[in-house]
Nucleic acid binder design. Structure first.
Lengths: 347, 347
DNA sequence: GTGAAAGCGCTAACAC
DNA sequence: GTGTTAGCGCTTTCAC
């Protein structure tokens, strides 16, 4: 029963509605005794402010929108990615008393800018959090900025913008993983790239190149295979890489789904992991612990990134000065069973 | 710029705001010519109604809340379950022009009723969709009904309530899977139960009993093992079942995560699936296709259930008469690689 | 410290 | 068919 209004409370407490409003919003300029009296009335009546009225008057909805690319729309079932993002955003929302509205969309949709514009105009959002790969697309950023809606992004781009951006060290950590594989004695280290529209994933390839160079290993085009982030593309690439002559002894896939596909294919080809082939992934999704052998991978702090981005957005909404600009949350390597010494490296 | 108001449109079109309102809300009693003129003005001004104002005046927010148990809160990472539910709810919301607010919570939280009450009072929701196992808990249902908020549930309980409930035929389909295993010559068919608080999952056990009885196989207590829906509990149960004497030749787990755990453990114990052991799961999550061998399972139409529940809720909100009462969307068996003839059954 | 008055932009009820 | 008049329940501005 959200029946009681601010008038009821004011009457019961013997004050004006403005004073009630002050108490509710924790504003200054209320004597302690008055405040207590109002508090009491609020509790007695079980009063809770009407959000729509509040929104209308204050032009703030306490609603954050989360925009992400919905993998289910094109059958790449990496649900844990979405869940991690949501988890982080929700955590920030909860602690700041905002509600979360979710809006998955298809990033390649030609009308996506319009869709988002409609969402902004039609829904009463205070701000928007953008997840990758949506957060990489200038067309979308333009549309949102044109609407003047505050936003924060989880994205690799440095941006240099006037809105908060949170990224992780994809490139550096991918280089580190590559060097780790090299340190195990692997020389033919293959790489499976991810979907080209996904900039963060693209950075992982750059990291691979860095790592190979730093380990003084030769980059070979035939050891690089183009995946699309899906399990199936991992299988396909593994097949191609392993069937060639002088096949790799290690495969580094730019995400876990593809790495899991590699493991499955390796097994079907009669190879043992990690004895015959080392496999590394990226993301540390739950699947990484469930495949056999479990996957050496990079723990990507997706939830933390989303949480930070959201917190920064809310800070901005509330004028808590600018913690704006780009931030970075560092990823880390997770060593499990799928990697080991290169065959014949004396182990 | 959601700057233009209904007054601006009215002025430009040379009509009253009420007429604009009629056009915007697709009401009758507007001459075609007038309607066109108003439409034109709307487009010219790029007008879009202010939702907060609309909510305040009409007491409708066009906001649906989705309440679900958040697996990440206690480390059972079955994200695909959440995603499927969201997917269904979102689809219904989209087609009916509602927005979706998500609210995960911990179903065993002692203060959950309060949390939900706060959510309802504080947020301006038109209705609530409840996902299992929250949807099974009378304590929660009571709290929501006491608030008078319309709701719909995805739940096994027949309910007999005055709100929509959508269920699936867990029990019957589990019996069918059991009979299928029996038809392959298996006699010692083990079952791994799920989390006890999850009624739908509990029904699957009843179906197993039915299926065993119908196949004239003996129910043996030692062939039933208690899991908790997690991958790890699947591994644990498999270990216990397979290490005993006269171990089962088939294991039916009440969800895919546990079934995947069984497969992993079987492999570690040196058993081949399905040659030495058949494994069946339930849910058909993406993982079912990614494990090796891929999992024979039950395709649970979670997204469809959620979509139907949401549609029924919205129907009710809009007074489109009652399609209320319980509905059922049927699950079906999916045959993959993890099941085969019983060892020594002449195959 | 506190209150009165004036909206926020829309829908609802009823008059015309 | 169309317009007028009141609110919806809150915040804001400014006076006291």
């Amino acid at each position: 029963m959200s029946k009681a209004t601010i008038d009821d409370v004011a009457k019961l407490a013997g004050v004006s509605i403005k004073t009630v409003s002050r108490v509710v919003n924790n504003e200054a300029n209320v004597r302690d005794a008055t405040r207590a009296r109002v508090q009491h009335a609020i509790e007695t009546l079980n009063y809770s402010p009407n959000q729509s009225a509040r929104s209308l008057a204050s032009r703030r909805s306490y609603l954050i929108g989360l925009l992400y690319d919905d993998p289910s729309l094109y059958e790449i079932p990496s649900s844990s990615y979405v869940i991690s993002i949501q988890e982080g955003v929700l955590k920030a929302c909860k602690s700041r008393k905002y509600d979360l509205l979710i809006h998955p969309c298809f990033y390649r949709d030609r009308h996506i800018a319009n869709e988002i514009r409609t969402l902004i105009e039609h829904s009463r959002l205070d701000g928007l959090v953008l997840a990758p790969p949506l957060s990489d697309m200038t067309r979308i950023l333009r549309a949102i900025e044109a609407c003047g809606t505050p936003l924060a992004r989880v994205a690799p781009g440095s941006g240099g913008d006037r809105h908060p951006v949170v990224r992780t060290n994809d490139r550096e950590i991918a280089a580190q993983m590559t060097r780790y594989l090299a340190s195990l004695g692997h020389e033919r280290i293959a790489f499976i790239t991810g979907h080209e529209d996904h900039k963060a994933v693209a950075n992982r390839y750059l990291g691979y190149e860095d790592g190979m160079r730093e380990s003084r290993l030769k980059l070979q085009e035939r050891l690089v295979c183009a995946g699309d982030n899906s399990f199936k593309s991992g299988e396909r690439c593994a097949m191609r890489l392993l069937k060639g002559r002088s096949p790799p002894t290690a495969i580094f896939a730019s995400n876990d789904d593809m790495a899991a596909g590699v493991i499955r294919m390796a097994r079907q080809l009669g190879l043992s992991v990690p004895e015959d082939l080392s496999v590394a992934g990226f993301d540390d999704i739950p699947l990484a612990q469930q495949v056999c052998p479990s996957l050496t991978t990079v723990s990507q702090p997706l939830a933390e990134m989303a949480e930070l981005a959201t917190t920064m957005l809310i800070d901005e909404l509330e004028g808590s000065s600018g913690s704006a600009g780009p931030s970075c949350i560092e990823a880390s390597l997770v060593f499990r069973e799928s990697t080991g010494p290169a065959p014949g490296s004396g182990a």
